[in-house]
Amino acid sequence: MPVRSVRRRYLLFKVSTDAAPDEKTIWENLRDSIDALYGARGLSLIDPNLIEYNEATRNGIVRCTHDTERFLRASLASIVSVSDTPAAFRVERASGTIKTLRRKAGIEKPKKESE
């Protein structure tokens, strides 16, 4: 049976802002925040990946490596503006699997455009 070599953590966050940021903007802000706090080495260790971002609900799921959850939380907390508008990123839930995170948060898996 194949074994996953790297353990992950999935964080569900909500963005509070008057702006209407898209997924790309959210990702750029997150990446820049990690880079500002921890640099390129931190980016490689945290290995962040924005799994999804819902512009309507302003909820998103971001993935990191298991040992670096605290760093990712600090990076999310450090974001104070998006598109030059004051903003706050707040983590609502965290889980070891995306399936559990979605189940606990009561959010459905986004359907692909072709479906």
Partner: peptide, 23 residues
Amino acid sequence: ATPLAMREPRALTALASLLDIDE
């Protein structure tokens, strides 16, 4: 000083990692 500057408790403890404070 504003609602947008407020963070959840675990975010504050995460920010403390910048000061090398254990969780």
